[in-house]
């Protein structure tokens, strides 16, 4: 564990806490894409299958349970909670995320570290996470004004993977046989997708203005 990875995990956890805070405090999920939340739940379920088979550390197990539990709770909330689901931007959240799932699964069958069920699922979860944020970014562009908590949520979500890239660079130079090229390439794509959001987020912070994404 290095400082980049720990900061990355804490940033990821913070993004989930901000999202939970927004939904709980405002009883609203406006500006949040249910499709992105469903994709993230799928990412965690596909990636953490080894939760009960390979024990890495207490930290690892606890964080996996938190990520799986929170992503499922958010999806449940946005689908079932009568107050919350009323504020869901159903007509704006129309990105066909099933194509993302199919595409990532096909890619995982072709490109993986080893053609074994756990490895294919792991690669699938890595590729899917890289594109999971697309429905959310599309929704933000369509909904124009972004409330603070939603903006912070998306910013933290993008920042965590950027910190993971620093972690991979650090591990590459410090560990002899370290190779995570699948996660690295997908992580670069994932972070690049946030590039324009980061730009407008920085502008809104610099000008102390409301976050506006050009539609």
């Amino acid at each position: 564990m290095n400082v980049f990875r720990l900061t990355g995990d804490m940033t990821h956890l913070a993004s989930i806490l901000v999202l939970l805070l927004k939904i709980y405090a405002t009883k609203s999920c406006s500006g949040i894409s249910l499709k992105t939340q469903e994709l993230y739940a799928l990412v965690f379920l596909a990636r953490y299958l080894n939760l009960f088979t390979d024990f890495i550390s207490v930290y690892n197990t606890v964080m996996k349970l938190v990520f799986i539990g929170s992503s499922l709770a958010i999806v449940w909330c946005m689908r079932m909670h009568k107050m919350v689901k009323r504020s869901y931007d159903q007509e704006l959240d129309t990105f066909r995320h099933y194509f993302l799932i199919a595409g990532c699964f096909l890619l995982a069958l072709l490109v993986n570290e080893k053609f074994m069920f756990p490895e294919v699922l792991w690669a699938f979860s890595i590729y899917l996470e890289a594109v999971s944020t697309i429905p959310q970014l599309v929704l933000l562009q369509r909904s124009g004004n972004v409330d603070n908590l939603t903006g912070q949520y998306v910013f933290l979500l993008g920042a965590y993977r950027a910190l993971y890239i620093l972690n991979w660079i650090y591990r590459y130079f410090t560990e002899p046989h370290f190779s995570r090229w699948i996660a690295c390439v997908a992580g670069l794509v994932q972070t690049a997708l946030y590039a324009d959001f980061f730009y407008y987020y920085f502008l809104s912070w610099k000008n102390n203005a409301k976050l506006q994404l050009p539609s």
Partner: peptide
């Protein structure tokens, strides 16, 4: 070998 690297990251 690299493919057996335990997935120690989240």
């Amino acid at each position: 070998t690299s493919s057996e690297t335990t997935k120690d990251e989240l």
